[in-house]
Nucleic acid binder design. Sequence first.
DNA 1: TGTTACTTTGTAATCATTACATATTAGCGG
DNA 2: CCGCTAATATGTAATGATTACAAAGTAACA
Lengths: 136, 136
Amino acid sequence: MPEDNVKKIKMTPQRAAILKYLEGNTSHPSAEAIFDAVRKQYPMISFTTVYNTLQTLKDLDRVWELNIDDERKRYDPNVMLHHHLICMECKKIVDIHMDFQLDVPDEKAQGYMISGRHVEFYGLCPKCRNKKKNND
Amino acid sequence: MPEDNVKKIKMTPQRAAILKYLEGNTSHPSAEAIFDAVRKQYPMISFTTVYNTLQTLKDLDRVWELNIDDERKRYDPNVMLHHHLICMECKKIVDIHMDFQLDVPDEKAQGYMISGRHVEFYGLCPKCRNKKKNND
DNA sequence: TGTTACTTTGTAATCATTACATATTAGCGG
DNA sequence: CCGCTAATATGTAATGATTACAAAGTAACA
Ligand SMILES: [Mn+2]
Ligand SMILES: [Mn+2]
Ligand SMILES: [Zn+2]
Ligand SMILES: [Zn+2]
C-alpha cells in the first residue's frame, strides 16, 4: 500500500477554499491577498481563519512563509527548494528555479548547523521599469 | 584632493551615538536593540530618533535593512555584498563572507532588471543546538 | 447518530513601525 | 561670535499586520 505521507487535517470548507486558491499559485500572496481571493467564493470566511490555516499549513510544511517583502509576510505553496526575485517597487515576487552551489565550509559556518538556504534577488519588474523610463 | 564621497549629514549627539554603536557592529541589531544600547550613553534619546536616523542612513546607503528576521527589521552597517546565516531559534544572525556564483540568465529573469542579491542560510546556532540536545 | 476535540468567528490586544505637531539645534553667513 | 533657518529631536498618537481569546459551530470517529 503506497503510504500517504501527507498528514491529515480536518477538512472544512474554509480550508478547502484556501487550499484550492493556493494550489499551484505562484503569486506569493500575502494573508490579505488570500483573504480577499477566498472571500469571493466564500464571503463569510474570517481573516483569523486565514491566519490560523496558514499557521497549520506551515507546521505541516505545506506552505513556506517568506520574509522577503518588508511590508508583509508572503506565502508560497511550493515548498521545494527554489529562489526568488522581488521587484523593489511593486513587491511582485517571481520564482527562480536554479541550482546554485551554496555549500558553506565548516570554518565559515561558525558552529551553526545549516538546514536551509534561499537566494533573494532584488530588481525591477518589467512594468516598473517602464514606468521609471516614462518618468524621465 | 581625495574626494570624500560620504555625503554630509547634520551631526547631532544622537546621530553620533547611533553611528558609534553601529560602527563595525556585526550583531545585526534591531531598532530596539540600537535604542537600548544608545540609551545607556544617551538616556534622553527617543525611539523615533532611532527610526529617523536609520531611515536617513538607509537613504544614504550607509546601512542595510534586513528582512531575514520574521519578527523585526534588522540593521547592518556593512553594506558590502555579503550573506547571512540566521538561527531559527534565537534569531542570531552572523555574516557569511563568500563569493557565490549567482548569475541569472536572461531567460530566467522574466524581464526583471536584477540589481541585488543575497543568500540567506537558516540553521541553529551553537547555543541553541546544545539546548536542544539537553532537552532529549 | 452522538460525542468531542478541533475549527471558525468576531473582537480585542499586541507589537513594530510611521505620522505628526511642537520644541530644539547644527551649521552657515554675516 | 551672533543670529537665522532648515533640518532634527521629541513625545504622543495613529496605523497596520499579526496574535490572543472566548464563545459558537462542526468534521470525523465510534
Ligand atoms: Mn516561490
Ligand atoms: Mn551582515
Ligand atoms: Zn514592479
Ligand atoms: Zn540560536
